[in-house]
Design a protein around this nucleic acid. Structure first.
Lengths: 343, 343
DNA sequence: TTGTAGGCGTTATCAA
DNA sequence: TTGATAACGCCTACAA
């Protein structure tokens, strides 16, 4: 059916060996021979069989990403950008991207990682949504499978990563709100096991601490990072006897839910209630009102991660074992009121 | 490193053959032997090497989907649901899902399909966003690679598919708007080469024809199925000397752009201007105002497609070579005005 | 009921 | 500069 190296060898009247090496650019092949081989290969539409190559080289030229999602049906747009970046960068290196989904913490998740590792399905992993202590880090390190991550866990293991200083970002964001004269600021985030949630919460505390504002536990909510969770959390917060006059959210999706809750309650966001998020997803520029948020270059981060991972897989030295980035504060009318400062 | 069947055979003191067949459930293996093998396999964490199995079986247990997108960074939420369905269903069958992106019509696209076919990377393909005449259908049919599709092209080839009657759906939608007393209805869609665009346009024409309303070419716009395109198209439409009083869009994303344009121009959507879309993406329930749209069960469709494809790959008879579905009209205030008929 | 052996398509080692 | 040949890990006639 498909043309194999054997067919090709027969066609050019050479041994399989020579053909293989002509194609792989070894320098012990006569230039004329190489040209002939390459030409005929093109002509016959020869493409090496992946499985055979993998078996022989013990490599798959595939990187894996397991989307940490309970319900992929309502995927965070964050992941669209992230996956697009992974896919594009992988393609540039002639790698494939294998994707699956698994709920963090559930049994299926660890099984999936284990399967992909044991059956040699991928040469390495991309991780994100790390926990402070993350079993994946331990497991992959022990299994000696290359991996890189967005965010860094506290495990005593060294691995390349990209980190976004969301702590500092959130501190800046909360300060911005304080500067506008609002002091009763609520925080909606996820479990503090999650690095991103923890960092952002820390930034929130930093800013309040510096302004000598006491922490009010009733204004701090831990939930999922979904729109619906934001909606419900906001409904609760806003029905307190002393409701907050600002709500900062660990991501934009949650903030979208908050906007909707505010609308339901007839609050004018930007004046009665300030709202902000994190991620700068596309929708946040188009919401009603547009959302103040912290922007991180998700697509580029994903690309960078792939570059690092492939270096790692190839045994190349990684120039920058840890790339630190700063999120950018994007001011929109959900905090600045009617004046549109930025789009 | 990873435990192979050889290691396992050694451990249980049997030949590779026997182990292999014990694991594969052949009935010519002593029950006691089988138990011993399975037990030890578990214990040692044996997982068959994919590459070897693929090479031997000439199968990859992988299905491919190439996302037809020019700019994956701003992916249509439609694709999130679709891909989630593909992934989940594939997983249920112990198949993998290989994903990549390519711009429809560009050279990279055909190369990608060709590569995946020739290098036997996947056992079959899922297609969508079909053209009226689609080279992929021709190519895959000629290559004798199994495939199924959402929507059906007009190529003289038989293949299993799921179709959504969007023509009828759009007819119903446009009628709904006509019933509300609006007659100047604009259509924003994509190239009429695209089956979905063509069908929806046909439904639009059906409804206008039945109501004896002449077609006004200036109200018909062909563009991309992106939010920004909808925004721009709407700006143009609404600045006509005789602007439309309703705009129906080939998908929700475009409708979102239209909503924004309307807001910019100070129009009250639902009264001054009616707007509707197709897909029922999550955002359409939360937009300002919520959007009237046609709903199709994207996730379930994707699952169904995978089931059909895997049957096809396995040579099983397909019970239903073509599954026809009806989209459901979801009325919201973007056409019904202030009254929220449905959420 | 179990084992031997050949081969899937490649790449890599060695010899010619 | 080229060509035999042996793996990689698995499956499956066929033989025992």
């Amino acid at each position: 059916m498909a043309v194999t190296i054997k067919d090709l060898a027969k066609a050019v009247n050479l041994s399989i060996t020579t053909v293989s090496r002509a194609l792989d650019g070894y320098d012990d092949v006569a230039e004329s021979t190489r040209e002939r081989v390459i030409h005929t290969a093109h002509e016959m539409g020869y493409i090496p069989n992946r499985a055979a190559r993998q078996l022989r080289r013990q490599r798959t030229d595939t990187i894996g990403y397991i989307l940490p999602s309970k319900s992929p049906r309502f995927a965070d747009p964050f992941f669209s950008d992230f996956i697009a970046g992974l896919g594009d960068a992988a393609g540039d290196h002639n790698f494939d991207l294998l994707i699956s989904t698994a709920s963090p913490g559930e049994k299926g998740e660890s099984e999936l990682y284990r399967r992909w590792v044991n059956s040699r399905k991928v040469d390495g992993f991309i991780l994100n949504r790390l926990r402070i202590v993350d079993w994946r880090v331990q497991f992959l390190a022990e299994s000696r499978v290359p991996f890189v991550s967005l965010e860094k866990s506290q495990d005593p293991v060294n691995y390349p990563c990209v980190t976004v200083n969301s702590r500092k970002g959130f501190r800046t964001l909360v300060r911005h709100i304080l500067d506008l004269g609002h002091q009763r600021i609520a925080f909606i985030g996820a479990s503090l096991d999650l690095v991103i949630s923890n960092d952002r919460f820390a930034g929130y505390l930093d800013a309040l601490g510096e302004a000598d504002i006491p922490i009010d536990q009733s204004l701090i909510i831990q939930t999922d990072l979904f729109r619906q969770s934001g909606f419900e959390a906001a409904k609760n917060l806003l029905s307190l006897s002393q409701p907050p006059n600002a709500i900062v959210c660990a991501n934009d999706l949650v903030a979208m839910g908050v906007l909707e809750a505010a609308k339901d309650l007839g609050l004018r966001v930007g004046t009665d209630l300030l709202v902000a998020g994190f991620d700068n997803i596309e929708e946040s520029a188009h919401s009603q009102p547009p959302l103040t948020t912290l922007s991180q270059p998700v697509y580029e981060i994903a690309r960078k991660l792939v570059d690092m991972l492939i270096d790692l897989i190839n045994g190349n030295p990684i120039e920058d074992p840890c790339v630190p980035l700063e999120p950018e504060l994007v001011l929109r009318s959900s905090t600045t009121g009617m004046v549109r400062v930025s789009n």
